[in-house]
Each structure stands twice: as structure tokens, then as C-alpha cells.
Amino acid sequence: MPSRRMRAAWDRATLGQKIAAFAGLAFLHLPVWVIFLYAFTTEDRTYQFPPPGLTLKWFEVAFARADIWAALKLSLAVASVATAIALLLGTLAAFALARSRFRGRELITLLFVLPIALPGIVTGIALLAAFKMGGIQPGFWTIVVGHATFCIVIVHNNVIARLRRIPPSWVEASMDLGADGLQTFRHVLLPQIATALLAGGMLAFALSFDEIIVTLFTAGHERTLPIWFFNELFRPRERPITNVVAVTVVLITLVPILLAYRLTRPNDTRG
């Protein structure tokens, strides 16, 4: 929502600055629109411009492909399980680190947040090596574990940011009025962190859903949707199908990300 201040800044900008701003946005978004456009083209090999004709046929073809459905289902299942694990462990960790003071707390926080700063390729190699050493066959659960490493961080960061804004006196007031730890969590803390959990969960889901680097190392023979894309690149047949799937994925991931953005915006209704 453009604020008055933003509008004032826009009015002050020179023509050159305005053009530059739009050029920057175009640079970011044009490739996505290319994908959108060529999901409807009648030509299936090259990206000739303009497309010789438009058709919805590729949606029908994609719909009938069992390999796409299998990959989509696997990705949704992995993202769901990884998010569930992240919600549980990330919240527990956030509570432990937000509410207590102990030696090494800073170090633990750093170790906890590190996986998201670590390049995916390092995480992938490390996990693969660890799984091999442990004699664990790569498959569904190894993908889940790989994704959980960064999903936990997302949830942890969201929840701890919210917890730090909750005055300790709320918890004390609840206990003072007779509520034990569990009741206090349920009636006082959970309603306060609910939107943070929702936002963190959706971000974690979206990240897991399109993760490929860690997945390449931990998937074994399983094919998540991003891996399916990756493989399609080497088979230029029926290129519009890839675009159709990409458009669908964009639409699916856009919804939770927009919702998460709305929910985490600071609201001014708090007393």
C-alpha cells in the first residue's frame, strides 16, 4: 500500500530515476513473463517471438502426465513434513533461546542459524556423506531431513522475533492468576505467536517446495518437482509443458508468500 511519504518521494523523482526504477523492475520480472507467455505458444521447440499462435493444449498434455503428478505429490509431501518438523523444533528452540540466559547461548543461536547461511551445496555434500557413513539409503526421509535444516531456522527466526516483543510480565501475570506452563502457552503465548508460526510455516513450505541443491544430494532416485524441471532441461521436447508446470508452481507458491508477507507486517492494533 503506497504511503503518503512514498508518494511524495515518487513526485520528487526525476524522469530518469523513474525510468531507471521501471527498468530495474522489468529486468527482475521479464523472464517470468516469458515463461508465462510461452506456456501458451503453439510452437514447441524454440522461443520465437512473437509466438506463432496461442493454445491451452499444453495444460491438457501436462495434466495427463503421470511423472509430473508424481513429482508434484512428492514435493508437496516433503514440504509438508519438513514444515511440520520445523514448526515443532523451531518453536521449541525459539522458546529456549528467547526466555533464558545461559553460558553459550549466543554460540547456540549462531550454530542454529548457520544452516541458512551455509551454501546449499555444502549442506548437500555434508548430508550425503553423513547418510553414507550411517548406512542410510537416500529417499523420502533424507530429503525431508535436508529441507528441515533450513526450514527450522525460518520458523525459529520468525517465532523468536515475536517472542522478544512479548513482555515477560504477560507470562508472569498468567502464572500469577493460576495458569501452569501449558495453560500459559495455550492461552497467552500461542495466540501471540500464531501469525508468526503461520508466516514462518508458509515461508518454510515455499522454500522446501522449490529447493533443488540440497535435494540433488539427498534425493537418491526420488524426483521432486524441481529435479523434474532440471531433468526436462536436457530434453527440449515439449518445452511448453515445462512452462505450464512453472506457471502452476509460481501461482501455488505466490499465495502463501503473499499471505506470509501480510501476516508478518507489524500491525498497529496492539495495545
Partner: peptide, 30 residues
Amino acid sequence: FQRSVNTVFQDYALFPHMSVVENVAYGPMV
């Protein structure tokens, strides 16, 4: 929560997601 004393806090510590009456009814509720 096992002591028969109650506290009025300096910052009031009212629960923002509950109405006035829900805040007051919190003790009986738990």
C-alpha cells in the same frame, strides 16, 4: 500458580488478544 497471592503489574500486563472481561475472567478460566 500454586500461591494464594495475586499481582497488579507496573505495566498492567493485560493480554491484548482478550477483551476486558476475558482478561478479568482469566483466573477463573484456567
